[in-house]
Amino acid sequence: MTDVSVTSPCRLRINGEPCTIDIPPSVTLLDLLRERLDLTGTKKGCDHGQCGACTVLVNGKRVKSCLILAVSIPDAEVTTIEGLSRDGQMHPMQQAFLDQDAFQCGYCTPGQIMSAVALMEEGHVHTREEIREFMSGNLCRCGAYNGILDAIEQVIAQQQQDRAGEAA
């Protein structure tokens, strides 16, 4: 693809791989991923921060990639849905989404999963109400909300079991 406007250098690590590319400053992180790096797992549902489909982790924190200029986060570590599985092994959250039928069309799903993974890190998982509130930045038009909650609770339960196992 030919870049046609004035470009700036953009240096990132994406899913552990270094990425250096010259792009116009108007390119968002989301469009960089989808249009220039062919990482289409991160979805565009509104392009205005209003739906959460584009959620990725930047330096471990969940953010909406549609509202970030790619050039404005130099050297950041970006994790997308493609970087979540390791060595062909699904992340427990991905498995839980499958088990709990936590999606239908699947379009909000990568964003929901990335958000849920960050939610676990943040620890906002004490009650179903708390999970609901802290997942509310991810809309799902198919209405898979119950399944998503169940998936998150499945992972919480697994973690608790694992911890209990370690302690024993």
Binding site: R62, K64, S115, L119, E122, F134, G137
Partner: peptide, 9 residues
């Protein structure tokens, strides 16, 4: 206000 992802930025 907003959502966790937005508040993070």
């Amino acid at each position: 206000g907003a959502s966790p992802q937005i508040r993070n930025r």
